[in-house]
Nucleic acid binder design. Structure first.
Length: 115
RNA sequence: UAAGUAAGACAAAUGAUCGCGGCCGCGGUGAAGACCGCGGGUGAGGAAAGUCCGGGCUUCACAGGGCAGGAUGCCGGAUAACGUCCGGUGGAGGUGACUCCAAGGCCAGUGCAACAGAAAUAUACCGCCACACAGCUUUGGCUGCGGUGAAAAGUCCGCUCUGCGGAUUUUUCCGAUUAUCUGUCCUUUGGACAGACGAUCUGGUAAGGGUGGAAAGGCAGCUUAAGAGACUACCGUCCGUCCGGUAACGGGCGGAGCCAUGUAAACCCCAUCCGAAGCAAGACCAAACAGAAAGCGACAGGCUUGCCCGGCCUGCUUUCAGGUGGGUCGCUCGACGCGGCUGGCAACAGCCGUGCUAGAUAGAUGAUCAUUCAAGACAUAACCCGGCUUACCGUUUUGCUUACAGG
């Protein structure tokens, strides 16, 4: 991804959980915290409650792909943690994509194009 | 053709666009580690799963001995090894192809066996039979039953103990049944009802008996009062011997009338095998750093496989404070895949040719669109192999079996 890295360490996740703002909908939970750098850092968390290994990998990929395709319209300088909920295991790409954009809109971190 | 059985193969496909991890090449930036761009090629499974066995590899430990502990369990072979595989033996199931088996030892010892049943490792409760006795008799014989009954007395047991409850024995009473007799009724053999009278001891037996997983080999005969391996034939069991087989075992012959249930996935006995921990193993490089206090102490402490003997080492432990948690290797060429030949019934082994087929490190395979169909199940490598077990939408190949039809 051109502008983004991923969150790797557990303490980075914990920092965002404690200090960031969160919104949730049916499929996802999103935590956002400014990190004071140029780019965004994104972390995706899928617990074992969601499903077995195959299901968790698929959900992770769907979320990452959704972010990647809309990376350009996100604001910069943010740590974003996206947690998948149990319902996310049974839906396709378009539902995940719209859920991600919905949460981003609630956080007001995407550029809204007025045309 | 249908049903079945055994052994395999595949695990949606194709195209376009966007995107990701290694690798190779070229180019650029930079002192370097590296980073960026372009191109090429490559990128999960039959179970990658469960982590249940076995091995390689690594580190630690290891003179040695003993005791524990664990695993396996018909025989032979294969293998690096196995609890796996192959071939056989025995047993069970199936018409069959074929499948299944925790398949050593209860004649070492100990334990357990609910319920049912008269009786559970040994039993006479019923039944059958005999002698005697009693009753009746047509002089042939027939019958001799036993109740969650009542009362009294005795014995034993339990409890909330000067009583209550339970079990059992004896006596008396009551009742039912049966044989005989008498009376009445019904059409007869005969039956129904009412009344009268009488009514047990001893021994033999293991053939039969609603149980049970199991009842002292099975079945038939002979014998007998009734019966019984008491005796006999066949089958089974055990012992001996001969033959075949490497062996498990099989077959023949002879002998023993057969002292005795099941359970060893109960303890246990016997035989064989087993050092521990695991790639977060471990090796190297770089960076950073700071110690302090208390306690124990050579009759101590630590390491030695779980314990002991024995052996080795000399400081050790706790608390508080602080630093690093970055990179490289291990990491994929291997008991490897494919094809052929040879040996072997086979598992497998040897030789020749050929191929290189993920290597991430928070973790890469995805998304969108279109088309097709049988409409897509289970399930994501994490050091590597050999197995086992479990999950699974389906498609398909070959051999064989049974049934039907045709030739």
């Amino acid at each position: 991804m051109k502008f983004s890295e991923s969150l790797k360490k557990n303490h980075q996740f914990q920092f965002v959980y404690r200090n960031g703002n969160s919104y949730a909908n049916k499929y996802l939970v999103m935590y956002v915290k400014e990190n004071g750098t140029e780019g965004n850092r994104i972390g995706i968390s899928v617990s074992r409650k969601v499903g077995n290994s195959v299901v968790r990998h698929r959900v992770t990929r769907l979320v990452r792909e959704s972010y990647r395709l809309h990376e350009a319209i996100f604001n910069s300088g943010l740590d974003i943690v996206i947690v998948a909920r149990k319902n996310a295991a049974s839906v396709g790409f378009h539902e995940i994509e719209s859920a991600l954009l919905h949460l981003a809109k609630l956080h007001q971190i995407i550029k809204v194009y007025i045309y």
